[in-house]
């Protein structure tokens, strides 16, 4: 396992299964819709394309992206003389993969200390993600420190502390109502002094339309740079999958203000598909790096576009290599209790 590359292979595998399993619920209605399109409409006529468009819109892909995908697909169908809906859908998946593929999605844990700032609108899952990430990085043998820089929301610091306790991660915090910049300053100084590997910065939720609050974030970032000129190494925008078109506006404004290095897509364990990330990746080139799959400490993983699409289309199209057979064993004991130490748990599989 390379020290600069968290979430290395074995985890990816474990997650693939877990993701597909979790996404099953989510993809059910989506798959049913797609299947309807396949079964009910054999002809590739106008209404087929219209339905397909609506299916994509239903996954929150957004109209522009959905239209672009369908247009491209129509051209391909014509050029390659496809006749069946199933063929067309397979091609669609390839189109979607083309949008998501070919981006470096690894967390850049490149320096000591590496500074990761978590930002996003209210309630999207920043604090929880930091709690999970701290645990993951610690269990990979990294020294982690958390800066509790949400000094605004009631009991935000308590919440961060309780999360950190679960992985025995140290927290640097000030009083509620204090200056978030000062918290970050102290945390980074401590990190440098102690040779900490990764500093995770929790920030208060803020709507991207609030200019003052966006300015505050920039200030926090500048404070970080006073201690570590190259900080932050990762600026991650946390978006929750249930969010509709507003996610695109969020990404645009946060990116403009801070220069995002990645997206965390949370709450994928629900029924929402988070299709807005297609538009975000296409428009801004900011890759989804992590996904949140629940409220447990292990419910975090890297984003794998192939698995994401497989899960999305599960039951309609078989994933290459996911055909029944020894290549991908069935999910091990669904509903089995979570392994106490996820690391060894996934290694055994």
């Amino acid at each position: 396992m390379s020290p600069t590359e968290p979430f290395s292979q074995p985890r990816r595998e474990a997650w693939w299964r877990r993701m597909s399993r979790r996404m099953d619920r989510a993809s059910l209605s989506f798959s049913e819709q797609v299947r309807d399109v396949v079964l009910l409409r054999r002809d590739l006529d106008e209404s087929f394309w219209d339905d397909l468009l609506q299916v994509l819109v239903g996954a929150d892909c957004g109209l522009p992206v959905a239209e672009r995908l369908v247009d491209r697909l129509r051209t391909r169908v014509r050029e390659e003389r496809m006749t069946s809906a199933e063929e067309a859908l397979r091609a669609l998946k390839a189109e979607m993969l083309a949008v998501l593929e070919a981006r470096d999605r690894r967390l850049r844990i490149v320096a000591v200390p590496t500074v990761v700032i978590m930002v996003g609108v209210n309630g999207s899952g920043k604090t929880t993600t930091i709690g999970k990430l701290a645990h993951r990085l610690q269990s990979e043998g990294r020294m982690v420190l958390i800066a509790a820089a949400d000094t605004f929301r009631a009991a935000a610091i308590d919440q961060m502390r309780l999360w950190a306790d679960r992985s025995a991660t140290e927290v640097i915090a000030h009083q509620p109502g204090g200056d978030p910049g000062a918290v970050v300053y102290d945390a980074l100084q401590a990190a440098v002094a102690r040779g900490i590997d990764v500093v995770l910065v929790d920030t208060a939720g803020r709507l991207h339309t609030k200019v003052n609050l966006m300015a505050e974030l920039i200030k926090v970032r500048n404070v970080a740079r006073r201690v570590i000129p190259k900080a932050p190494h990762e600026t991650l925008l946390v978006i929750e999958a249930p969010t509709g078109m507003n996610a695109i506006a969020q990404a645009r404004v946060f990116h403009e203000a801070l220069g995002l290095t990645g997206i965390v897509l949370t709450k994928l364990d629900g029924t929402s598909r988070g299709g807005t990330v297609l538009a975000i990746e296409e428009d801004l080139g900011v890759p989804v790096k992590l996904v949140g799959l629940g409220e447990g400490i292990d419910d975090l993983n890297v984003f794998d576009p192939r698995a994401y699409l497989d899960a999305l289309f599960a039951g309609v199209l078989e994933a290459p290599g996911s055909a029944p057979g020894p290549a991908t064993p069935a999910p091990a004991k669904p509903g089995a209790p979570k392994p106490a130490t996820p690391k060894s748990g996934s290694a055994h599989r």
């Binding site: 209605s29 819109v57 609108v121 249930p242 507003n246 996610a247 629900g270 029924t271 807005t276």
Partner: peptide
């Protein structure tokens, strides 16, 4: 949440 997308109905 007012930002909720297509799943709001479900």
């Amino acid at each position: 949440d007012a930002m909720t997308g297509q799943e709001a109905v479900n």
